[in-house]
Computed example of a mutant assay.
Amino acid sequence: MRTQVTPSGAPSMSDVAARAGVSHQTVSRVLNNPELVRPETRARVEKAIAALGYRRNMSARALRTRRTGLIGVVSPGDALFGPTRVTIAIEEAAREAGYATVLTVVRGSDAATAEQVMSFFLGHHVEGIIVIAPIAEMARTAQRMVGQLPMVLVGAGPEPGVAVQSVRVDQRQGAREAARHLIDLGHRRMVHLAGPAEWFDARERGAGWREELLAAGLEPRLVDVAGWGAADGHAATQRLLAEAEPPTAIFAANDYVALGAVRACQEAGWTVPGEVSVAGFDDVDAAGFFGPALTTVRQPFTELGDQAIRALLQAFGELPGASVTVAPSLVLRSSTSSPAA
Protein backbone atom coordinates (compact mmCIF):
# COMPACT_ATOMS: atom_id res chain seq x y z
CA MET A 1 0.00 0.00 0.00
CA ARG A 2 1.25 3.46 -0.90
CA THR A 3 -0.03 6.62 0.78
CA GLN A 4 0.18 10.08 -0.78
CA VAL A 5 2.30 12.36 1.39
CA THR A 6 1.74 16.12 1.68
CA PRO A 7 3.57 18.25 -0.92
CA SER A 8 6.03 19.55 1.70
CA GLY A 9 7.59 16.10 1.78
CA ALA A 10 7.16 15.69 5.53
CA PRO A 11 4.30 13.35 6.47
CA SER A 12 1.46 15.02 8.36
CA MET A 13 -1.02 13.74 10.90
CA SER A 14 -3.56 13.53 8.08
CA ASP A 15 -1.18 11.28 6.13
CA VAL A 16 -0.94 8.97 9.15
CA ALA A 17 -4.73 8.94 9.50
CA ALA A 18 -5.20 8.05 5.84
CA ARG A 19 -2.69 5.22 5.96
CA ALA A 20 -4.15 3.78 9.18
CA GLY A 21 -7.72 4.23 8.01
CA VAL A 22 -8.75 6.30 11.00
CA SER A 23 -9.70 9.89 11.69
CA HIS A 24 -7.31 12.78 12.36
CA GLN A 25 -8.73 12.93 15.91
CA THR A 26 -7.87 9.27 16.53
CA VAL A 27 -4.24 9.88 15.55
CA SER A 28 -4.17 12.85 17.91
CA ARG A 29 -5.51 10.69 20.74
CA VAL A 30 -2.86 8.03 20.09
CA LEU A 31 -0.18 10.70 20.34
CA ASN A 32 -1.55 12.50 23.38
CA ASN A 33 -3.80 10.08 25.28
CA PRO A 34 -3.02 6.57 24.01
CA GLU A 35 -4.81 4.91 26.92
CA LEU A 36 -8.11 6.20 25.46
CA VAL A 37 -7.65 4.29 22.19
CA ARG A 38 -8.40 0.61 21.67
CA PRO A 39 -5.17 -1.46 21.53
CA GLU A 40 -5.80 -2.74 17.98
CA THR A 41 -6.48 0.77 16.68
CA ARG A 42 -3.49 2.17 18.53
CA ALA A 43 -1.27 -0.52 17.03
CA ARG A 44 -2.49 0.32 13.51
CA VAL A 45 -1.77 4.02 14.00
CA GLU A 46 1.65 3.36 15.50
CA LYS A 47 2.49 1.12 12.54
CA ALA A 48 1.51 3.92 10.13
CA ILE A 49 3.62 6.42 12.10
CA ALA A 50 6.64 4.15 11.83
CA ALA A 51 6.09 3.41 8.13
CA LEU A 52 5.78 7.08 7.17
CA GLY A 53 8.49 8.32 9.52
CA TYR A 54 6.05 10.86 11.00
CA ARG A 55 7.50 13.34 13.49
CA ARG A 56 5.39 15.61 15.64
CA ASN A 57 5.62 19.35 15.02
CA MET A 58 6.60 20.39 18.51
CA SER A 59 6.51 24.11 17.69
CA ALA A 60 2.92 23.90 16.53
CA ARG A 61 2.02 21.77 19.53
CA ALA A 62 3.55 24.33 21.86
CA LEU A 63 1.53 27.13 20.29
CA ARG A 64 -1.71 25.16 20.68
CA THR A 65 -1.19 23.75 24.16
CA ARG A 66 1.48 26.03 25.65
CA ARG A 67 3.41 22.85 26.33
CA THR A 68 6.70 21.96 24.67
CA GLY A 69 7.44 18.51 26.07
CA LEU A 70 10.88 19.77 27.17
CA ILE A 71 12.53 19.22 30.54
CA GLY A 72 15.62 21.16 31.55
CA VAL A 73 18.47 19.22 33.17
CA VAL A 74 21.20 20.99 35.12
CA SER A 75 24.41 18.97 35.43
CA PRO A 76 27.67 19.75 37.25
CA GLY A 77 29.53 18.61 34.13
CA ASP A 78 31.61 15.95 35.89
CA ALA A 79 32.78 13.00 33.80
CA LEU A 80 32.60 10.78 36.88
CA PHE A 81 30.51 7.62 36.69
CA GLY A 82 27.79 8.65 39.15
CA PRO A 83 26.75 12.05 37.72
CA THR A 84 27.11 10.78 34.15
CA ARG A 85 24.95 7.73 34.81
CA VAL A 86 22.32 9.84 36.57
CA THR A 87 22.14 12.18 33.57
CA ILE A 88 21.65 9.23 31.20
CA ALA A 89 19.00 7.68 33.47
CA ILE A 90 17.02 10.93 33.57
CA GLU A 91 17.17 11.32 29.78
CA GLU A 92 15.98 7.74 29.29
CA ALA A 93 13.15 8.12 31.81
CA ALA A 94 12.08 11.42 30.23
CA ARG A 95 11.95 9.82 26.79
CA GLU A 96 9.82 6.96 28.14
CA ALA A 97 7.42 9.56 29.56
CA GLY A 98 7.20 11.35 26.21
CA TYR A 99 9.54 14.25 27.01
CA ALA A 100 12.86 15.45 25.63
CA THR A 101 15.65 16.96 27.71
CA VAL A 102 17.63 20.17 27.33
CA LEU A 103 20.98 19.94 29.16
CA THR A 104 23.10 22.73 30.57
CA VAL A 105 26.30 22.45 32.60
CA VAL A 106 26.74 24.63 35.70
CA ARG A 107 29.99 24.84 37.61
CA GLY A 108 29.29 27.80 39.91
CA SER A 109 26.65 28.76 42.46
CA ASP A 110 26.57 32.55 42.21
CA ALA A 111 23.36 34.44 41.52
CA ALA A 112 24.48 35.46 38.02
CA THR A 113 24.96 31.82 37.01
CA ALA A 114 21.53 30.86 38.31
CA GLU A 115 20.00 33.76 36.40
CA GLN A 116 21.74 32.68 33.18
CA VAL A 117 20.47 29.13 33.60
CA MET A 118 16.90 30.28 34.13
CA SER A 119 17.08 32.61 31.11
CA PHE A 120 18.36 29.72 28.99
CA PHE A 121 15.56 27.38 30.09
CA LEU A 122 12.81 29.99 29.87
CA GLY A 123 14.04 30.82 26.37
CA HIS A 124 13.63 27.17 25.43
CA HIS A 125 10.19 27.03 27.10
CA VAL A 126 11.03 24.03 29.27
CA GLU A 127 8.18 22.82 31.45
CA GLY A 128 10.28 21.95 34.47
CA ILE A 129 13.84 21.47 35.72
CA ILE A 130 15.80 18.60 37.21
CA VAL A 131 19.01 19.63 38.96
CA ILE A 132 21.67 16.95 39.46
CA ALA A 133 23.30 18.14 42.67
CA PRO A 134 26.03 15.86 44.02
CA ILE A 135 27.68 18.76 45.83
CA ALA A 136 26.45 21.57 48.09
CA GLU A 137 27.31 24.21 45.50
CA MET A 138 24.81 22.76 43.03
CA ALA A 139 22.11 22.61 45.70
CA ARG A 140 22.62 26.32 46.39
CA THR A 141 22.26 27.03 42.67
CA ALA A 142 18.96 25.13 42.74
CA GLN A 143 17.77 27.21 45.68
CA ARG A 144 18.24 30.37 43.63
CA MET A 145 15.94 29.01 40.92
CA VAL A 146 13.09 27.85 43.18
CA GLY A 147 9.65 29.17 42.33
CA GLN A 148 10.23 30.02 38.67
CA LEU A 149 9.52 26.55 37.26
CA PRO A 150 8.63 23.14 38.74
CA MET A 151 11.89 21.65 40.02
CA VAL A 152 13.32 18.41 41.41
CA LEU A 153 16.75 18.01 42.97
CA VAL A 154 18.64 14.75 42.39
CA GLY A 155 21.39 14.04 44.89
CA ALA A 156 22.31 12.35 48.14
CA GLY A 157 20.40 14.96 50.13
CA PRO A 158 19.68 18.67 49.87
CA GLU A 159 21.86 21.23 51.55
CA PRO A 160 20.23 22.35 54.83
CA GLY A 161 17.87 25.22 54.09
CA VAL A 162 17.39 24.31 50.42
CA ALA A 163 13.63 23.87 50.02
CA VAL A 164 13.50 21.72 46.89
CA GLN A 165 11.79 18.37 46.42
CA SER A 166 14.55 15.79 46.09
CA VAL A 167 15.17 12.25 44.89
CA ARG A 168 18.24 10.46 46.17
CA VAL A 169 19.97 7.15 46.78
CA ASP A 170 20.35 6.12 50.42
CA GLN A 171 24.14 6.41 50.44
CA ARG A 172 24.28 6.03 54.22
CA GLN A 173 22.46 2.71 54.16
CA GLY A 174 24.71 1.44 51.37
CA ALA A 175 27.81 2.21 53.41
CA ARG A 176 26.30 0.55 56.47
CA GLU A 177 25.67 -2.63 54.47
CA ALA A 178 29.26 -2.67 53.21
CA ALA A 179 30.57 -2.13 56.75
CA ARG A 180 28.30 -4.82 58.18
CA HIS A 181 29.51 -7.27 55.52
CA LEU A 182 33.15 -6.70 56.51
CA ILE A 183 32.33 -6.92 60.23
CA ASP A 184 30.43 -10.18 59.70
CA LEU A 185 33.46 -11.59 57.90
CA GLY A 186 35.44 -10.99 61.08
CA HIS A 187 37.41 -7.84 60.23
CA ARG A 188 38.32 -5.50 63.06
CA ARG A 189 41.08 -3.33 61.53
CA MET A 190 39.18 -1.58 58.81
CA VAL A 191 39.52 1.75 57.00
CA HIS A 192 37.13 3.78 54.89
CA LEU A 193 38.86 5.71 52.11
CA ALA A 194 36.46 8.66 52.08
CA GLY A 195 35.66 10.82 49.07
CA PRO A 196 35.82 14.63 48.89
CA ALA A 197 33.87 16.18 51.78
CA GLU A 198 31.99 18.67 49.59
CA TRP A 199 30.12 15.78 47.96
CA PHE A 200 26.85 14.66 49.54
CA ASP A 201 27.65 11.07 48.60
CA ALA A 202 30.98 11.12 50.43
CA ARG A 203 29.44 12.66 53.54
CA GLU A 204 26.63 10.15 53.71
CA ARG A 205 28.85 7.14 53.06
CA GLY A 206 31.23 8.30 55.77
CA ALA A 207 28.34 8.77 58.19
CA GLY A 208 26.99 5.29 57.46
CA TRP A 209 30.44 3.78 57.99
CA ARG A 210 30.77 5.48 61.38
CA GLU A 211 27.31 4.43 62.51
CA GLU A 212 27.78 0.76 61.68
CA LEU A 213 31.22 0.44 63.26
CA LEU A 214 30.13 2.25 66.41
CA ALA A 215 27.08 -0.02 66.62
CA ALA A 216 29.48 -2.99 66.51
CA GLY A 217 31.65 -1.52 69.28
CA LEU A 218 34.50 -0.71 66.89
CA GLU A 219 36.42 2.52 66.38
CA PRO A 220 35.54 3.90 62.92
CA ARG A 221 38.56 5.01 60.93
CA LEU A 222 38.23 7.28 57.91
CA VAL A 223 41.07 8.45 55.68
CA ASP A 224 40.32 11.30 53.28
CA VAL A 225 41.53 10.83 49.73
CA ALA A 226 42.12 13.64 47.28
CA GLY A 227 39.42 12.65 44.78
CA TRP A 228 37.38 9.85 43.22
CA GLY A 229 40.04 8.32 40.98
CA ALA A 230 42.08 5.13 41.02
CA ALA A 231 45.27 7.13 41.59
CA ASP A 232 43.74 8.57 44.77
CA GLY A 233 42.98 5.11 46.12
CA HIS A 234 46.40 3.85 45.09
CA ALA A 235 48.29 6.60 46.93
CA ALA A 236 46.18 6.34 50.09
CA THR A 237 46.55 2.55 50.24
CA GLN A 238 50.31 2.73 49.81
CA ARG A 239 50.42 4.85 52.97
CA LEU A 240 48.15 2.44 54.84
CA LEU A 241 50.26 -0.60 53.97
CA ALA A 242 53.35 1.13 55.37
CA GLU A 243 51.79 1.35 58.84
CA ALA A 244 52.87 -0.93 61.68
CA GLU A 245 49.42 -2.57 61.70
CA PRO A 246 47.88 -2.21 58.24
CA PRO A 247 44.13 -2.70 57.88
CA THR A 248 42.76 -6.09 56.93
CA ALA A 249 39.85 -4.49 55.05
CA ILE A 250 39.31 -1.32 53.01
CA PHE A 251 35.96 0.18 52.09
CA ALA A 252 36.64 2.61 49.24
CA ALA A 253 34.72 5.78 48.37
CA ASN A 254 33.84 4.36 44.97
CA ASP A 255 34.87 1.54 42.63
CA TYR A 256 37.73 3.47 41.02
CA VAL A 257 39.26 4.29 44.39
CA ALA A 258 38.87 0.58 45.18
CA LEU A 259 40.65 -0.33 41.95
CA GLY A 260 43.61 1.82 42.99
CA ALA A 261 43.60 0.20 46.42
CA VAL A 262 43.72 -3.29 44.92
CA ARG A 263 46.59 -2.30 42.64
CA ALA A 264 48.59 -0.87 45.57
CA CYS A 265 48.09 -4.09 47.54
CA GLN A 266 49.20 -6.25 44.64
CA GLU A 267 52.28 -4.11 43.97
CA ALA A 268 53.27 -4.45 47.62
CA GLY A 269 52.89 -8.24 47.49
CA TRP A 270 49.67 -8.32 49.50
CA THR A 271 46.94 -10.65 48.28
CA VAL A 272 43.36 -9.47 47.81
CA PRO A 273 41.28 -10.74 49.53
CA GLY A 274 43.66 -13.13 51.33
CA GLU A 275 45.45 -10.44 53.31
CA VAL A 276 43.39 -7.34 52.55
CA SER A 277 39.69 -7.29 51.60
CA VAL A 278 38.56 -4.40 49.39
CA ALA A 279 35.00 -3.19 48.76
CA GLY A 280 33.78 -0.30 46.62
CA PHE A 281 30.66 1.70 45.81
CA ASP A 282 28.66 2.28 42.57
CA ASP A 283 29.03 -1.06 40.75
CA VAL A 284 30.55 0.43 37.60
CA ASP A 285 30.13 -1.60 34.43
CA ALA A 286 33.52 -3.32 34.75
CA ALA A 287 33.39 -4.01 38.51
CA GLY A 288 32.70 -7.69 37.98
CA PHE A 289 35.83 -7.96 35.80
CA PHE A 290 38.34 -6.34 38.15
CA GLY A 291 41.10 -8.63 39.38
CA PRO A 292 39.61 -9.85 41.68
CA ALA A 293 35.94 -9.12 40.90
CA LEU A 294 34.88 -6.31 43.18
CA THR A 295 32.44 -6.49 46.06
CA THR A 296 30.55 -3.19 45.86
CA VAL A 297 27.33 -1.31 46.56
CA ARG A 298 25.16 -0.98 43.48
CA GLN A 299 23.38 2.33 42.92
CA PRO A 300 19.94 1.98 41.22
CA PHE A 301 20.46 4.73 38.65
CA THR A 302 17.57 3.67 36.41
CA GLU A 303 15.13 3.83 39.33
CA LEU A 304 16.61 7.18 40.35
CA GLY A 305 15.89 8.62 36.90
CA ASP A 306 12.36 7.17 36.91
CA GLN A 307 11.62 8.66 40.32
CA ALA A 308 13.00 12.06 39.30
CA ILE A 309 10.74 12.23 36.25
CA ARG A 310 7.77 10.97 38.26
CA ALA A 311 8.35 13.65 40.88
CA LEU A 312 8.56 16.36 38.22
CA LEU A 313 5.37 15.19 36.51
CA GLN A 314 3.70 15.33 39.90
CA ALA A 315 4.94 18.90 40.29
CA PHE A 316 3.46 19.76 36.87
CA GLY A 317 0.08 18.94 38.36
CA GLU A 318 0.86 21.26 41.27
CA LEU A 319 0.60 18.35 43.65
CA PRO A 320 2.79 18.36 46.76
CA GLY A 321 5.40 15.64 46.60
CA ALA A 322 7.51 14.17 49.35
CA SER A 323 11.23 13.66 48.81
CA VAL A 324 12.04 10.13 47.67
CA THR A 325 14.92 7.88 48.77
CA VAL A 326 15.75 4.74 46.79
CA ALA A 327 17.71 1.86 48.27
CA PRO A 328 21.07 0.60 46.96
CA SER A 329 22.09 -3.06 47.18
CA LEU A 330 25.27 -4.85 48.22
CA VAL A 331 26.83 -7.00 45.49
CA LEU A 332 29.12 -9.71 46.86
CA ARG A 333 32.06 -10.77 44.73
CA SER A 334 35.53 -12.20 45.31
CA SER A 335 37.43 -9.14 46.59
CA THR A 336 36.30 -9.68 50.19
CA SER A 337 36.77 -12.63 52.54
CA SER A 338 37.46 -13.41 56.18
CA PRO A 339 40.78 -12.03 57.48
CA ALA A 340 43.80 -14.32 57.51
CA ALA A 341 44.31 -16.14 60.81
Rank of each mutant, 00 (worst) to 15 (best):
S337E: 09
W270R: 14
G155P: 02
V27H: 06
V262A: 12
T295R: 01
V164H: 04
A215K: 13
L182D: 12
I71A: 01
P160S: 14
R188H: 12
G82H: 11
A311C: 11
E275Y: 05
F120K: 00
V74D: 02
L312I: 10
P196H: 05
A293H: 00
P328N: 12
P246F: 03
A156F: 06
T248Q: 07
L149F: 02
A261S: 15
G288K: 00
V102E: 02
V5G: 10
A215M: 03
R298T: 14
P39Q: 03
E159C: 10
L304S: 06
L182Q: 12
L218M: 14
A17D: 07
L103Y: 10
R56I: 10
A60T: 07
V86F: 01
A286E: 15
R176E: 14
G195A: 00
R203C: 02
S335F: 09
H187W: 03
A60Q: 05
V126F: 04
G206I: 09
L332V: 15
R67D: 05
Y256L: 15
R66P: 00
R95Q: 14
Q307D: 09
K47H: 12
W270H: 12
E127W: 02
V225Y: 02
D255V: 07
S335Y: 03
D224T: 15
E46Q: 13
A139M: 12
R42H: 04
G72L: 08
S166A: 15
A50V: 00
R333E: 03
H192V: 09
T101K: 12
A10H: 13
E91P: 02
V131Q: 04
R210F: 04
A48Q: 04
L185Q: 11
G98Y: 11
P339C: 07
H24E: 04
E91F: 03
H124G: 04
H124M: 11
D306A: 13
Q307S: 13
